[in-house]
Amino acid sequence: MKLTAIRPVGIVLVRELSLTMLLLLGVSALVFLILYLSPGDPFSVLLEGQSLSEEARSGIRQAMGIERSWYGQYFHWVSGMVRGDFGASVRTGLPVLSEVLRTGINTLILTLGSLLVTLLIAAPIAIRSAMRGMSKATWSFTILSYVISALPVFWLGYIVIYFFTHKLGLFPLAFGFATGAKKWLYLLLPIFVLGIGNGTISEVIRTLREEMGRVMEEDYIRTARAKGASVWKHAFKEGFLIPVTEIIAAKIPFILGGAVIVEQVFNWPGMGRMAWQAAQDRDYPVIMGIAIVAAVLVRLGSLFQSVVYVMVNPRASKE
């Protein structure tokens, strides 16, 4: 790769990363504020059912360093975050960062896997109908996929577990239940359920078909036809690559949201389930940590989109 090609990508990276920094500050402040304003705190959850004297309560608070004012607490947390210290879970006492990263990897596998499933289903239908016109087959696939993407993900999850795990016994009941290769088979179910049920298939089909259809009408595609070259090859960048990266960037937040439910249903040791648990426990440090990691994931999606766009579009890289 030539230097002229790397420089614009570098510019985009620097711009996006500095934007991300600002965004993370904003996200953390907002989440903190919401947590502070919402009723309850970790100790009332931890100490539920135990009657403690006011003295003992404030003693615990002091011991954990939470006697400060709300902005004092926030700045304490931010200064820790800058040093890479996200604090420890109130409930388990484990360091938040390593815990969130551990579960975050699982969520990432689930999210990216389900995006791949969505694209593998939607892209062939969309591309074929854009390039060859709507046939009976593409019509029926489109309608089917619209119906499927209207199914609620929790319902679909239970149905799938009932049929494939209970009735047919094709998949292990939970992660770690089976050994060897079969252990990983378990991952497939939630990935498929989230990929189908995240409600984005129909949208992906529509967007891709419109974009590809528009590109098909371009003069340069006519030229490609006239010179006997592959239409797909010429339409790929504008008609497929750019819209697909846009879709991925735009859908990551929704799929992360869907992951919370799927992780509950499938008992998947991911960030979503952890967030759910932390919210129940009012485990502030964990919630904050998860919010930051989720925001980073979302930003990574749009960073990926910007980088691809600059690399693909010669005009964008000149500006």
Binding site: D219, R222, A226, G228, H234, E238
Partner: peptide, 22 residues
């Protein structure tokens, strides 16, 4: 197949739009 480009080629109006911008 084997005709387009090889036996018959074509040039168009609006040459700028007729070339692949990417």
């Amino acid at each position: 197949t084997g005709i387009r480009g090889r036996e018959i080629s074509m040039i168009f109006q609006n040459p700028k739009q007729s070339l692949n911008p990417f």
